[in-house]
Computed example of a mutant assay.
Amino acid sequence: MTPTRRAVLGGSVAALVTTTGCTSVGPGEAPSPGPEVTLLNGVIASEAALIALYDAVLAAHQGLSGRLGKLREHHVQHLAVLKRHYVPGSTTGTATPEPRPSAAAPRTESGALSAIRSAERKAATARADEVRRVSPGLSQLLASIGACEAGHVQELT
């Protein structure tokens, strides 16, 4: 039986949690962020931007909701899993950023689909690059997300 995306992402979270140690800091001391924090912030911002683009397109082109609704939901799930990777007081992260991106939808449905396809392709390419720069647990999660985004490109073609 093929594992579901949810099972793969859940396993990735468990792997990262077990491979990430916590450091203790005194009152008023901010932990020094590990090298993955900046990258993780960027991935979270990227997922939030994709959701904003989907929201803008779906608001402007309701006829695409059947085709795009489940793809948008994948990004909502990605964002939730990524946000769980922040462990206050650790070198993995300090606080979950709350990006509030906005996006504008192209005027036509074909233009909207093209914009989403392009954004998905860019995100998948970024995830493929990022997996080389992070710990194995986070690498597995980013690879899973990137594969999903690449699948979205194919689905939108």
Score class of each variant (00 low, 15 high):
residue 1 M to H: 05
residue 3 P to G: 05
residue 6 R to W: 01
residue 6 R to Y: 04
residue 7 A to F: 00
residue 7 A to K: 04
residue 8 V to A: 06
residue 10 G to V: 09
residue 10 G to K: 07
residue 11 G to F: 00
residue 12 S to T: 15
residue 14 A to V: 14
residue 17 V to T: 12
residue 18 T to I: 09
residue 19 T to L: 05
residue 19 T to C: 00
residue 23 T to P: 00
residue 23 T to H: 08
residue 26 G to T: 15
residue 27 P to M: 10
residue 28 G to K: 11
residue 29 E to R: 10
residue 30 A to V: 15
residue 30 A to I: 14
residue 30 A to R: 14
residue 31 P to F: 06
residue 31 P to C: 09
residue 31 P to E: 14
residue 33 P to G: 10
residue 33 P to L: 10
residue 36 E to D: 14
residue 37 V to D: 14
residue 37 V to C: 09
residue 37 V to L: 09
residue 37 V to M: 11
residue 37 V to G: 06
residue 37 V to A: 11
residue 39 L to M: 11
residue 40 L to S: 09
residue 41 N to D: 14
residue 41 N to W: 11
residue 42 G to R: 15
residue 42 G to M: 06
residue 42 G to I: 11
residue 43 V to Q: 15
residue 44 I to D: 01
residue 44 I to Y: 01
residue 46 S to N: 12
residue 46 S to A: 13
residue 48 A to T: 04
residue 49 A to V: 01
residue 50 L to S: 14
residue 50 L to W: 02
residue 50 L to T: 13
residue 51 I to K: 04
residue 51 I to D: 02
residue 52 A to M: 03
residue 52 A to H: 02
residue 52 A to D: 02
residue 53 L to D: 03
residue 55 D to T: 05
residue 56 A to D: 03
residue 57 V to Y: 02
residue 58 L to H: 04
residue 60 A to M: 02
residue 60 A to P: 01
residue 61 H to K: 05
residue 61 H to L: 01
residue 61 H to I: 00
residue 63 G to R: 06
residue 64 L to G: 04
residue 64 L to I: 07
residue 65 S to Y: 00
residue 66 G to P: 00
residue 67 R to F: 02
residue 68 L to K: 07
residue 68 L to Y: 04
residue 68 L to F: 01
residue 70 K to V: 14
residue 73 E to P: 00
residue 73 E to N: 09
residue 74 H to A: 11
residue 76 V to M: 04
residue 77 Q to D: 12
residue 81 V to M: 05
residue 82 L to P: 03
residue 82 L to A: 05
residue 83 K to C: 08
residue 84 R to P: 00
residue 85 H to T: 15
residue 86 Y to G: 03
residue 86 Y to A: 07
residue 89 G to I: 10
residue 90 S to G: 04
residue 90 S to C: 07
residue 91 T to C: 06
residue 92 T to Q: 12
residue 92 T to K: 13
residue 93 G to F: 04
residue 94 T to P: 01
residue 94 T to M: 08
residue 95 A to H: 13
residue 95 A to N: 13
residue 96 T to G: 00
residue 97 P to L: 12
residue 97 P to D: 13
residue 98 E to I: 12
residue 98 E to H: 07
residue 99 P to N: 08
residue 100 R to T: 14
residue 101 P to T: 08
residue 103 A to R: 09
residue 104 A to S: 13
residue 105 A to G: 13
residue 107 R to D: 15
residue 109 E to D: 15
residue 110 S to E: 15
residue 113 L to A: 12
residue 114 S to I: 12
residue 114 S to K: 10
residue 114 S to Q: 13
residue 114 S to N: 12
residue 115 A to Q: 14
residue 115 A to D: 13
residue 118 S to H: 10
residue 120 E to K: 07
residue 120 E to M: 05
residue 123 A to L: 09
residue 123 A to D: 15
residue 124 A to M: 14
residue 126 A to R: 15
residue 131 V to G: 03
residue 132 R to L: 07
residue 133 R to D: 08
residue 135 S to Q: 10
residue 136 P to K: 03
residue 137 G to D: 02
residue 137 G to P: 01
residue 137 G to Y: 01
residue 138 L to D: 06
residue 139 S to E: 07
residue 141 L to H: 11
residue 142 L to R: 08
residue 144 S to G: 10
residue 144 S to V: 08
residue 144 S to R: 05
residue 146 G to C: 08
residue 149 E to I: 11
residue 150 A to I: 15
residue 150 A to L: 13
residue 151 G to S: 09
residue 153 V to I: 09
residue 153 V to R: 07
residue 154 Q to V: 12
residue 154 Q to C: 08
residue 155 E to V: 12
residue 156 L to Q: 14
residue 156 L to P: 03
residue 157 T to N: 10
